[in-house]
Amino acid sequence: MQPFEYNPNPGRVVFGSGSIKKLPDEIKRLNKSKPLLLSTPQQADQVKALEPILKDGSIAPAGLFSEATMHTPTHVTEKALQYTRECGADCVVSFGGGSTIGLGKAISIRTGLEHVCVPTTYAGSEMTPILGETAEGRKTTKSDPKILPGTVIYDVDFTMTLPEGLSATSGVNAIAHAVEALYARNTNPVINLMALEGTKALAESLPIIVNKPHDVDARSKAQYGAWLCGMCLGSVGMSLHHKLCHTLGGSFNLPHAETHTIVLPHAIAYNSPKIPETMQRLADVLPESHGDAIRGLNVLLTKLKVKRGLKEYGMKEEDVDKAADIAVSNPYWNPREIEKEPLRETIRRCWAGEEAKADL
């Protein structure tokens, strides 16, 4: 066996239907009493459902900031920080997906406030010490153990109304975390177990959710898979897939989960010549792969009825060259050398919505 290093994630997880009722106790456990609630504008009404739960536990929310948005733009963070100071919050509770949790991380790392997450999607951001922020059209990421939320409450009840389409793309986004962890430079056996188990759970549950969105067992299985995949993202380095998605999302204002969904099979196809063992292990946990991981991913995306082209989200064909230039401008580790022309063709295929194939 190859030598490795493993650093366990110190975050606390509370998992199960109805676990939101434990939120007051979790805040008290941190010796806090005035949480700032965070959400997107679309979830402002839903997050208000936490207020009576908190009050029943003798916790009075300091306020609600409901302007979280994708890619965590710094101007929104500055506005949220001012509100945090004005309302006198002593901790932050993020309710939602990656956009809201990203804002919670941005506030927490700047202020030192404890951060509690209530995820309502499968994005996995709540399990990572990584913060991606956008300023002046460029998305940058930083990693710091202090960014990792301290407590995460996984209550499947809050995922039951997640639209089928967003469930699908959010879940594939989670799978992407696990897939890149399998061939990360600093991967290890524990993370590999989590990555394969998380991918399997999501690949099996997401098609059920798309056709039966109120299936509680499938929703619970997907949330379990998302937790494991998020652990992978938070524990080892990422490569081409995540670099491409950050470039595309931050530079062209493309939706986060949808971009990850489109890019994943193409990024894996690009790297496939250099990761044969990973490709086999991935094929083994993808239904209907017939021993071919790229086929398995293509079949999964077909079953999930998701859009396959970035052009469907507003990316222009002339942006392909710009995206390739940005993607190669900052060197980063990847199992296959980053070559501009094959990478440009990979991005073009993502733009056009073609099926992935390993021929570059």
Rank of each mutant, 00 (worst) to 15 (best):
residue 1 M to E: 09
residue 3 P to G: 13
residue 11 G to M: 13
residue 11 G to N: 15
residue 14 V to M: 02
residue 21 K to D: 06
residue 30 L to F: 02
residue 31 N to H: 14
residue 38 L to S: 00
residue 44 A to L: 01
residue 44 A to E: 05
residue 55 K to D: 06
residue 56 D to H: 01
residue 57 G to H: 08
residue 59 I to R: 08
residue 62 A to R: 13
residue 67 E to N: 04
residue 67 E to H: 05
residue 74 T to A: 12
residue 75 H to W: 07
residue 75 H to V: 03
residue 77 T to H: 07
residue 81 L to G: 09
residue 88 G to W: 03
residue 90 D to S: 12
residue 91 C to P: 11
residue 93 V to W: 11
residue 93 V to F: 11
residue 93 V to Y: 11
residue 96 G to L: 03
residue 96 G to D: 05
residue 108 S to W: 04
residue 109 I to M: 14
residue 110 R to Q: 14
residue 121 T to R: 07
residue 121 T to I: 07
residue 122 Y to V: 13
residue 128 T to A: 06
residue 129 P to D: 05
residue 131 L to K: 10
residue 132 G to L: 08
residue 143 S to C: 10
residue 143 S to H: 07
residue 146 K to L: 04
residue 148 L to W: 03
residue 153 I to Y: 14
residue 162 L to P: 15
residue 164 E to S: 15
residue 166 L to H: 12
residue 170 S to N: 04
residue 172 V to D: 02
residue 175 I to D: 06
residue 177 H to N: 02
residue 179 V to H: 03
residue 181 A to C: 05
residue 187 T to S: 15
residue 187 T to Y: 08
residue 193 L to A: 15
residue 196 L to F: 09
residue 198 G to H: 07
residue 204 E to W: 06
residue 205 S to T: 14
residue 205 S to K: 15
residue 208 I to Q: 04
residue 219 R to W: 05
residue 221 K to T: 12
residue 223 Q to T: 08
residue 229 C to P: 11
residue 230 G to P: 07
residue 239 S to E: 14
residue 247 T to D: 00
residue 248 L to F: 02
residue 249 G to M: 09
residue 253 N to I: 05
residue 258 E to D: 06
residue 261 T to S: 12
residue 266 H to N: 11
residue 268 I to H: 06
residue 271 N to F: 03
residue 273 P to L: 10
residue 274 K to Y: 12
residue 277 E to C: 07
residue 279 M to E: 04
residue 281 R to W: 08
residue 287 P to L: 13
residue 292 D to V: 01
residue 293 A to T: 02
residue 293 A to M: 02
residue 294 I to S: 00
residue 299 V to E: 04
residue 305 K to S: 11
residue 310 L to K: 01
residue 310 L to M: 03
residue 312 E to T: 08
residue 314 G to D: 06
residue 315 M to N: 01
residue 315 M to Q: 00
residue 319 D to A: 04
residue 321 D to Q: 06
residue 323 A to S: 04
residue 329 S to R: 10
residue 329 S to F: 13
residue 330 N to T: 15
residue 331 P to V: 03
residue 331 P to N: 01
residue 334 N to F: 00
residue 342 P to G: 13
residue 343 L to H: 08
residue 343 L to V: 07
residue 347 I to D: 13
residue 348 R to H: 14
residue 348 R to T: 13
residue 351 W to G: 12
residue 352 A to K: 08
residue 353 G to L: 00
